[in-house]
């Protein structure tokens, strides 16, 4: 009969799920990721300001798109990460799923706020207004409120495991807003243009404008990945602090 050795190399799921192992392998990943992020931003900003032409219609204001589109993409991608983590928490009770959810929420809020801000800055010279209550902009504002509500919920509970279950349910319910953001430009008459990059029939943007856009999107995505990993590591450390503080209080006879 085959026997399992206790020294068997752990699988990828264990390496992700076990907080100690997660801290071990991510220690070697954070610095290379941070360097890759810095290099991608350096390359991206060079292409944005020195190697890309003005758009034939929008002129130089197209350079705002290189920040607006990546932040808007991350505002939704971050929610997709939280959505997957919420399923991981509720269905599999994955030990790192709620850590991932908690770490992602402030990042999602920041990128959504940036998408709204850069959109407003871009909207003034191109549409003549900073803000319009149209489908895309309003649903993105709702997304920001959802992120802020989720952050507030995390802070409202001392018991983080209980908070994780409640936040997971709210995250799953709030996910209904993501397809609304995506398809709002098709469903309603809006000032916002329809999708021009992520389309089933391929991008409609010229290559000279698509290149800086993709490089900046890569840079922002790497930034998100780096910050998310570091924040997850910090959350695991905080939980370790909590258990050490409890042990310390118990040793001092101050806690049951």
């Amino acid at each position: 009969m085959a026997q399992t050795s206790p020294n068997t190399h752990p699988g990828w799921f264990t390496r992700i799920a076990h907080p100690g192992m997660f801290m071990g392998w991510t220690r070697h990943v954070v610095l290379p990721l941070a360097i890759a992020t810095a290099l991608a931003f350096a390359a991206g900003l060079y292409v944005v300001f020195f190697a890309s032409p003005p758009d034939y219609q929008m002129g130089d204001t197209v350079r705002m798109m290189y920040v607006h589109v990546p932040t808007a993409w991350l505002s939704q991608f971050c929610y997709a990460v939280m959505f997957s983590s919420a399923i991981g928490t509720l269905v599999w009770r994955h030990p790192m799923a709620d850590v991932s959810q908690k770490a992602a929420a402030p990042l999602g809020a920041a990128f959504t706020a940036l998408a709204l801000f850069t959109g407003a800055m871009w909207g003034r010279p191109t549409w003549g207004t900073f803000w319009e209550w149209d489908g895309r902009m309003t649903s993105t504002l709702v997304l920001l409120f959802i992120y802020l509500g989720i952050i507030a919920l995390w802070r409202a509970f001392d018991d983080q495991l209980k908070a994780a279950r409640i936040v997971s349910v709210v995250t799953l319910v709030g996910a209904v807003n993501i397809p609304i953001i995506k398809f709002s430009v098709d469903w309603w008459q809006t000032l916002h243009q329809p999708a021009s990059v992520f389309r089933t029939d391929g991008p409609t943007v010229d290559f000279s404008i698509l290149t800086p856009l993709l490089v900046m999107t890569l840079a922002f995505s790497l930034l998100f990945l780096t910050l998310h990993l570091v924040r997850m590591r910090t959350e695991v450390t905080r939980r370790r602090i909590r258990s050490l503080e409890l042990a310390q209080a118990r040793a001092a006879g101050g806690a049951p």
Binding site: D60, R63, V67, L114, M121, P125
Partner: peptide
């Protein structure tokens, strides 16, 4: 040369640097 709407482009990048810098610093 960023053209006639340079102040909007500058505000976009300055605001982004500020928010991302704060996010990195806080993290």
């Amino acid at each position: 040369d960023l053209g006639q709407h340079w102040e909007f482009i500058a505000a976009t990048y300055a605001g982004s640097v500020l928010v991302i810098g704060a996010l990195i610093g806080w993290t």
